Structure formats: structure tokens, C-alpha cells
Computed example of a mutant assay.
Amino acid sequence: MKKIKKILSVALTGAVLLGFSQITAVSESEIQSVYLGGQPFGVKFYNNGLVIINLESYYDGNRYICPAKEGGLKVNDIIKEVNGEAISTNEALQDAAVNSNGGILTLKIEREGKEQTKNITPQKNTAGMYLIGAWVRDSCAGIGTITYYDTDNNYFAALGHGICDNDTSLLLPLGSGEAVYANINGVTKSSFGKAGSLNGYFTDSTIGYLTKNSDVGVYGTISDNFSNKETRIQIADNSDIKTGNAKLYTTIDGGEPQYYSIEITRIVNLDSNSNENFVIKITDEKLLNYCGGIVQGMSGSPIIQNDKLVGAVTHVFLNNTSEGYGVTAQNMVTNYDE
């Protein structure tokens, strides 16, 4: 029976009303070394455009209408322009509708990677306000975990999966974003059917600025204040990953990252676009007792086996919160280079 899973996305806020492909192995001499992450971080993420998360009809006094739907808009469309002007905030779209006086709004949208133009005619509601009947999201914020720092190429990698919209699961288009260190001040434990979470707050210390949001991680530049003194660790080739004992390096309180025992129980696939490459099981009693297994905010936590960075945790299984998926570190590195 297929396991129920939950992606460990950062908590999203800001809504108005968040095949198999072959991997080419690299030689030992080409394997790079990086600094381990394990630190919690806060992300402030701003979309490149407005993501439609819901279309809702409203009553105009005679009937229920939805101009956005009637004009051909769909959930997960990304609104890029209104009447030739770039748009980036929920408020700007609302103002455009309110001030249209019922005139046509020409919207440039992106749908499944292709640009289209749609004409929408706002209609009044019973209060006399012009609306289009679309809920949109322009930004999100939350907490995750840094996977590694590559100082040679001046970037960090985190999460092990992309930042997706909570309502539609769309990979959010990155406009801009900042990553800052975060402090963990509590944990909501995971339990059967429910993923817990790391609870904390952002600090004023900047890690860097986001440059890419992808299916296998988020990436950003490293700020000038980076001063990690940990020993470098090699990135494992995908072929190095084996079932058996491993370690999770993560932060579950206000202190420093710690190692916790886990087991890699199954290699699922090595698809470079997947963040479900292998299955892990938490075996550390402290982590099980304190967190109930894997919790949200832990995504991106480095996984080490045989003194190499093999990947990062990405998901929790809701029917057994001691288990979840991991993405390979090589896939994260390869994705950054693409």
C-alpha cells in the first residue's frame, strides 16, 4: 500500500481573503567538498507575478458570477502583467479591478511555462465594488534547514525540495527572496496522520539571497558574514548510497546542530528531478521522543553516510512519522549547475 506523505515545505502565508533518468557518475577526483549545513533558516519569498490559488464566484445582485473564470483564467496561472504593467502584489491587482470601472483588463499570464493573454472584465458585487473573483498569492515565509554551503562557488543549498504553494502545490516562481538564520524555540511533535513542526523566529543575520527555486532544493548566494569553521565533507556520488546506518544532522532546539542516528531503508530511484530518491527511518530515541520523528522545518537537514554527504530529508510519511523520503546531494549539486 502506498504510504501517505507530506512535503516539508516552509509554512506559506500571504494569501489575500504559500520516468527514471540515468545519472552519469562522476569520478572521485571530480567530487567536490562542501560545508555541512544543519542550521535552521528563515526565508522571505516573493513571487515573480501573482499565483492564482482559487477562483470564486460572487453574487452581483442577480446571479453568481466569476469574471476571472469566464475570461479563461485557471488555478495555478501566474499573472505577470495587467494592461502592460508588471504586477507583483495582491493589492495592485485589487486596485486594478476596483479602478477599472468595468473596463477590460488585459492580463499577461504564464500557464505551464507558456505566456498567454487573457481579457477580464471586472463586475460589481452587491456592495458596488468591481471584482474579478480570483484569490492570488504574492509571497510566503517560513522556516527550513540549510543542507550545505559551497564556498568555492559562493552558494548555499537548502530544503531538498522547492517552495510550493500550500493550496495548489505549484512550484512558486521566484521573484526575489532573502534567507536569514532562525532560532528554534519549540517543537510540535509529529503523530500518526499529522506532521509536527519546528517552531521559531527569524534573526537579523543574513545568510544570502535566493537565486533559484527548484524541485530538489532552493539555492542562494552566501553573504559576506559567512564564517562556518566546520571541516569540509565530500558530496557522495549517487552510486555510493547504500541501505544501512546513516546520520541526520539537524537542529531541534536553540543550540547547535547535532547528529542523530537513522537508517536508509530503501533506494527508490535516482531521478535527477525527484526529491524522493531514498527512504529513511529515524532510529535515534532522543529524536523520536522529542519530535515524534520527522517534522516540518527539518526538510533540508543533511544526511551523512560513510563520512560523505549523501542527501537531505524532504518528506515525512504521515502513517509512520519516523520514516520519510530523502533527496540525494548529487542531485542537488547537479540541479544547481543546470
Rank of each mutant, 00 (worst) to 15 (best):
I304W: 05
Y325G: 03
S301L: 05
Q330F: 13
A312Q: 02
S299G: 12
G324Q: 07
V316W: 10
S322P: 02
T314M: 06
G311H: 00
L318P: 03
G300Q: 08
N306T: 04
P302N: 07
T321H: 03
Q330Y: 09
G326A: 15
I304E: 05
G311F: 02
D307F: 11
S299Q: 01
H315E: 14
G324M: 05
T321Q: 07
D307G: 08
G300Y: 06
H315F: 12
E323T: 13
D307A: 14
T314W: 09
V327P: 10
G324N: 06
L309P: 00
G300T: 09
V327I: 15
L309G: 00
A329M: 10
I303V: 15
Q305P: 09
I304M: 02
G300D: 11
N306H: 07
G311D: 06
A312E: 03
L318W: 07
H315P: 08
N306K: 10
G311E: 04
T321A: 06
S301H: 01
T314F: 04
H315T: 15
S322C: 12
L309V: 02
T328K: 08
Y325L: 08
V327T: 14
V316R: 09
L309M: 01
V310S: 04
I303F: 11
N319P: 02
N331W: 03
G326Q: 01
V310T: 02
T314A: 08
N306E: 14
I303D: 09
H315W: 13
T328C: 14
E323G: 01
V313P: 05
F317N: 07
N306P: 01
D307I: 05
V313G: 07
P302E: 12
Q330V: 10
F317E: 12
